[in-house]
């Protein structure tokens, strides 16, 4: 474990908590893409099937929290507060993300076993899972500031993981190209948002995308 990965995981945890609190407190999931949240639930389910393999208390605890929180979020969006779910703007065709991710996982992986292919699928899936949410923000042309804080924390987590991979390569000579390439793609997808967040939201303005 290193500081980059720890802060990255905590940023990830913060993002998930911000989102859950936003939906629970405002009793509304307006502006939130349910499709992205379903993709995240798929990501954690397919990645943490190795939950029984004990790595550390921290590892097991975080996996359980991520799985539970992702399903709780999907439940809140599609069941409890489904009246506030914005169908009209959450229209990204997720099949164009799931299928290519799965096919790519079958073609490019470290080991052609069920667990390893599913882990690889979760890595590819996670790198594009935020697209429906970013697409929804671009369609509505704006995002509540709490939603942009969620996106900033979520985007920062994988950006910090890149620093973790650099650190691990230089100190432990350990690297995983699949995770690194997907993590770079994932972080690049946030760049446009990061720019808007830093230039606008941090100055107290609302996140308005140029229409």
């Amino acid at each position: 474990m290193n500081i980059f990965r720890l802060v990255g995981d905590l940023s990830h945890l913060l993002a998930i908590i911000i989102l859950l609190l936003k939906i629970w407190k405002t009793r509304s999931c307006a502006g939130i893409s349910g499709k992205s949240q379903i993709l995240f639930a798929i990501v954690y389910t397919s990645r943490y099937l190795d939950l029984p393999n004990f790595v550390s208390m921290y590892n097991t605890l975080m996996k359980i929290v991520f799985i539970a929180a992702s399903y709780a979020t999907v439940y809140l969006i599609y069941m409890k507060f489904k009246a506030t779910y914005d169908h009209n703007h959450d229209t990204f065709r997720v099949e164009f993300l799931v299928l290519p991710s799965f096919v790519l996982a079958l073609l490019i992986n470290h080991d052609f076993t069920v667990l390893e292919v599913l882990w690889t699928f979760s890595i590819y899936m996670e790198s594009v899972a935020i697209l429906p949410q970013l697409f929804m923000v671009s369609k509505t042309g704006e995002a509540e500031s709490i939603t942009s804080h969620y996106l900033f924390a979520l985007g920062s987590y994988r950006a910090l993981y890149i620093l973790n991979w650099i650190y691990r390569y230089t100190t432990e000579d350990h690297y995983d190209l699949i995770a690194i390439v997907a993590g770079i793609v994932q972080t690049v997808l946030y760049c446009d948002f990061f720019y808007l967040y830093i230039t606008k939201v941090l100055k107290g303005k609302k996140l308005q995308l140029p229409a």
């Binding site: 995981d9 590892n59 975080m62 080991d111 390893e116 882990w119 973790n164 995770a179």
Partner: peptide, 10 residues
């Protein structure tokens, strides 16, 4: 037997 790559990261 290719040893199963361990994924110790979340």
């Amino acid at each position: 037997q290719v040893e199963e790559p361990d994924h110790d990261e979340l």
